[in-house]
Design a protein around this nucleic acid. Sequence first.
DNA 1: GTATTTTTGGCATTAGATTCCAAAATTCAT
DNA 2: ATGAATTTTGGAATCTAATGCCAAAAATAC
Lengths: 159, 159
Amino acid sequence: MPKIPQLDALDRKIIRALQRNGRITNLELAAEVNLSPSPCLRRLRNLENNGAITGYSVDVNTKAYGLPVTVMVRISLEKHTEDVVVRFEERMKAIPEVLECFVMTGLSDYLLRVVVSDLEDYERFVRDRLHPIGGISSIDTSFVYGVVKRTHVFPEFHG
Amino acid sequence: MPKIPQLDALDRKIIRALQRNGRITNLELAAEVNLSPSPCLRRLRNLENNGAITGYSVDVNTKAYGLPVTVMVRISLEKHTEDVVVRFEERMKAIPEVLECFVMTGLSDYLLRVVVSDLEDYERFVRDRLHPIGGISSIDTSFVYGVVKRTHVFPEFHG
DNA sequence: GTATTTTTGGCATTAGATTCCAAAATTCAT
DNA sequence: ATGAATTTTGGAATCTAATGCCAAAAATAC
């Protein structure tokens, strides 16, 4: 694993500006963090190259795209032998409807965020994608009714 | 609510390309979706203006930034009177450690994603941020041990 | 306090974004 | 099907941003 040099206050300012707007130009970014464009771009490239920044993306309206139903799924496995765990996790990586899969403390082993087009589509997901994996002891489904908040911007860091 | 015109296959290709790399140039994007740069940019601007695309962001290594602990918190309210609900949701929007807050079906009312620097910081979060809100009947905390998958890329849509 | 190292800022060059318009493709009415 | 109307595309010119280089400034070490 790459060890990432400690970020300074300016790096974190750059990161928070990009979390607010990932497609801001370097010129605007430089102005926002009070730096001239060339050192700003150099810092940005460093953050990208040393692993502090892992990528860029776009936020899309799920309804507009045609996947209006978001589901949070908590899954426990029957046992935790290497083969069962590896098989499950490989399937998670391969299933396109699964956007996120976390390993959790607490009663459930995994928490998934899944997007589908409707209830029927979710039934298909459980029947055709999850059940065939095997080794699953419980599936607890919660649908997302509304989004109160969703941001990419980290809290200010005072370290 | 703005009604967003139906996206066609090309719009969805553009979106998926940007979900993979939100900072791709218009020239590269155009090449990827087999379109020349000018109509590609015009489509992109349309998606931005009509609400299909809501923003751009950067993915940051939480450890590098100094917030290595991610927590999923399930919260239920004692009652669902307008004042209690509104107060709770306004506080969620205002607390910087809360990156996401969803309204859920199932046993819990809300699911939060919270980032903090350590366990002590999370205790402070619960004591100083959540408890003072009032009206909370239960808080169920699960720590994220590992990330099996995390993508922004939606499944291909065949509609 | 001076030498060394790191970071910055400005400039020249290269690459990309944006705009405009004519051509091509699609849609619609008949 | 056929032609008119509408929408979408592609290319060229222009404007804006990114990139690389080097000297100056700042920070650090001795």
